[in-house]
Simulated assay, not measured.
Amino acid sequence: MRLGGKNTDASALFGHVYWIGGGSGAGKSTIARRLADRHGLRLYATDDVMSDHAGRSTRDDAPLLSGFMAMDLDERWVHRSPETMLETFHWFRGEGFDLIVEDLLALPKDPPVLVEGFRLLPHLVRPLAVSGHAVWLLPTPAFRRHALDSRGSTWGIAGRTSDPDRALHNLLERDRMFTDRLSEQTKLLGLPIVEVDTTTTEDELTEQVAQTLGI
């Protein structure tokens, strides 16, 4: 691994960091908050810094983000196929991950940091994470839909388009394919996962993640 032009042992920089990635609607934020509260960890939610990272990005280092920002809602969610949405969504392609790393390096090492979010792509996290300090939550489509419905956010984006039904279908299909991609990548890289379905309780999921991370 190289940071700042020098070879660096990841454990020296990120040995205090725990990573929870995964598909949308998998319960990452809920589980991370519970673990952070229970164990006195500093929580870094990548969703919360998306606007900040967008503002810190340039067209040169985040061309997909620039293209996305130039679209209206129908162009983003109605007129493109889920496949195109998957392949061109900036966060899914790792744009801005360097800013996550930059933020983490700026934080004190005490208390340890628990970072969570769908932006934690396996191939980007693996070179940084200490063995046993990372896990990906992979929700079934039924669990994802149930999670979105329970939050009341199912129509949050789709409802602002000219064709909410189509937009919602596109979003759910895009997220399903993203979760499938995470499954393939974690298996290929030998990284730990926790599968989440509608029979999984919040307490059970919290314990599974805690055990996987060794917290």
Rank of each mutant, 00 (worst) to 15 (best):
M50T: 11
R42S: 10
D103Y: 05
D165P: 03
M50D: 05
L104M: 04
P141A: 06
R119S: 14
R166E: 02
A147Y: 10
D180K: 00
E173R: 08
R151C: 06
S131D: 15
A10E: 08
P122C: 07
R2L: 15
A54T: 11
A45K: 09
W77Y: 15
G23D: 04
K109F: 05
V125D: 00
R2D: 12
G5Q: 13
M69N: 09
L189H: 05
L35K: 03
V135T: 08
G55L: 01
R119M: 13
L73R: 02
G190Q: 05
P192F: 09
E207P: 01
E202V: 12
F97V: 03
M71R: 13
T30M: 07
D149R: 14
H79G: 13
D47R: 00
A54D: 10
H90N: 11
I157M: 13
S131A: 15
T201D: 09
L105I: 03
A70Q: 04
E87A: 15
E116I: 08
D9T: 12
L168P: 00
F92Y: 11
S51M: 12
T140G: 09
T58I: 05
G67W: 01
S66E: 15
P108T: 01
G117E: 09
I215L: 15
D72A: 00
G4I: 06
S183E: 13
A106Q: 10
T186E: 08
G25E: 14
L182K: 00
D103I: 06
W91N: 02
R56Y: 08
A45E: 10
R151G: 03
V194Y: 03
A129E: 07
D47W: 05
I157D: 12
V125A: 03
R2Y: 10
T46S: 02
S150N: 09
R174N: 06
